[in-house]
Write a protein that binds this DNA or RNA. Structure first.
Lengths: 150, 150
DNA sequence: GTAGGACTTCGAGTGCGGTCGAAGGCAAGC
DNA sequence: GCTTGCCTTCGACCGCACTCGAAGTCCTAC
């Protein structure tokens, strides 16, 4: 059972899984077809969340004969990609827009690019904010407990 | 009117204000007492949000004879500090806890430090996530419109 | 054949962080 | 003295991203 092999692989991997990438998924997924629980284990998302992502149109997932979800390599890759974008606080609405554009075909490449570049700009701002806040916190930590400013 | 001087200063500053720091606030605030609109202009928060922060106990703000909020240098500094933490996604609850500890006096320094260090660790994780996502997006942008993975 | 557990759909609920609107107060300028 | 406009309090509401529960289905193991 490929599903069990995957489960073993996940459970026997010492420590944390390395950060998941689309490339890694291609290598890792011996199984062509994964159940929702496997994808959940693989990505760290809950089955609830995976169903939610499908419901709002972020991924299309096939069904087996008895109606259960079957994630193929492509679907898993898509979920991993979405997870990366979510980890960077890209709003679901933007991700949905992006996915929509991909579905519409190659004519939409310019808009896709614009979307990604806008998000990239956001990320840079967030990076800067984070670094500024880190500096403030580090200052607080080194001056340890000073009450100034809060 | 010091308030008007501040407003002028904000409005005549070419381009964006530099990132606000507690130190900057000390230099900038010619006025000892600022109205809520001034603090809003200064910090970029809305007056609504400033009232909200006060409501939930993040800042104490004095009142004048007719009941209006009067922000002194200290209060402004606190707001700026809070804003920095919020910009780094520190949850309001943690900020509230920190503020609470400061109020309780110097005995709480160890817990304050622990709080800041925990947050610092979170920030480093977020930094890493952001950088990973940035790499993914940059890859997408350079390979421009490839459909793989989403 | 039946108990268990993972799955299905659907809609409702949660937590966070604001955001808004209503109803009224007060001070300045015309 | 009246309009303008910023201020006050209060509670209700919003958007986002899940998260959960109910009720039912299906496969597996015993």
């Amino acid at each position: 059972m490929t599903t069990e092999r995957l489960r073993d692989l996940i459970e026997t991997t010492p420590g944390e899984l390395p950060p998941l990438t689309v490339e890694l998924v291609r290598d890792l997924d011996i199984a062509e077809h994964l159940a929702i629980a496997d994808v959940a284990a693989l990505t760290g998302l809950s089955a609830h969340t995976l169903r939610y992502y499908e419901r709002i149109g972020l991924v299309d997932v096939a069904r087996d004969a008895s109606g259960r979800r079957v994630y193929d390599r492509d679907a898993v890759g898509r979920v991993v990609f979405i997870t990366r974008l979510r980890d960077s606080d890209m709003p679901i609405a933007s991700i949905a827009r992006y996915v929509e554009l991909v579905k519409q075909g190659p004519d939409t490449e310019a808009e896709r690019l614009a979307l990604l570049e806008a998000h990239r700009a956001d990320m840079l701002v967030r990076l800067r904010d984070l670094q500024a806040a880190l500096a403030v916190v580090d200052y607080k930590i080194t001056t340890y407990g000073g009450a100034c400013g809060g």
